[in-house]
């Protein structure tokens, strides 16, 4: 999908008006952020906004994350284990200490 973020009140207003005029091209809109369908219409609307409002409009392309293709197994396993931990109050740092799970620092520094 195409992610569109507005950074000024004018751009935000224009994004709202665009959704009103072309609801079929909008998958979601949250305030000044919208996800547009990946169609020529979606691209046309996103580019028109950026042309009009320049750096006040950010356009990015998003895709669903497949954790089995794009995320290392250690990260997947850690996420699953931490989400299903027995004591909800345990912070991750404490949870990972003394286990094979990666530390927050090593997670932070590695690019996906």
């Amino acid at each position: 999908m195409l992610l569109v973020i507005a950074y000024s009140s004018e751009a935000r207003q224009k994004l709202r008006n665009t959704e009103r005029a072309y609801p079929e091209a909008f998958r979601r809109r949250f305030g000044r952020v919208a996800l547009l369908a990946e169609t020529h219409l979606g691209a046309f609307l996103a580019l028109r906004l950026r042309e009009r409002h320049g750096p006040d409009v950010q356009v990015a392309r998003t895709e669903p994350l497949n954790e089995f293709s794009h995320v290392p197994g250690s990260v997947r396993t850690a996420a699953t284990a931490y989400a299903n931990r027995e004591t909800a109050a345990t912070p991750y740092t404490k949870f990972a200490a003394g286990t094979a799970h990666p530390s927050i620092d090593s997670l932070r520094d590695r690019e996906l």
């Binding site: 973020i5 950074y7 000024s8 009140s9 000044r32 950010q58």
Partner: peptide
């Protein structure tokens, strides 16, 4: 964009 986002919230 961080600056722009700050400005927008001030506006």
């Amino acid at each position: 964009r961080d600056d722009r986002a700050d400005r927008l919230s001030l506006v």
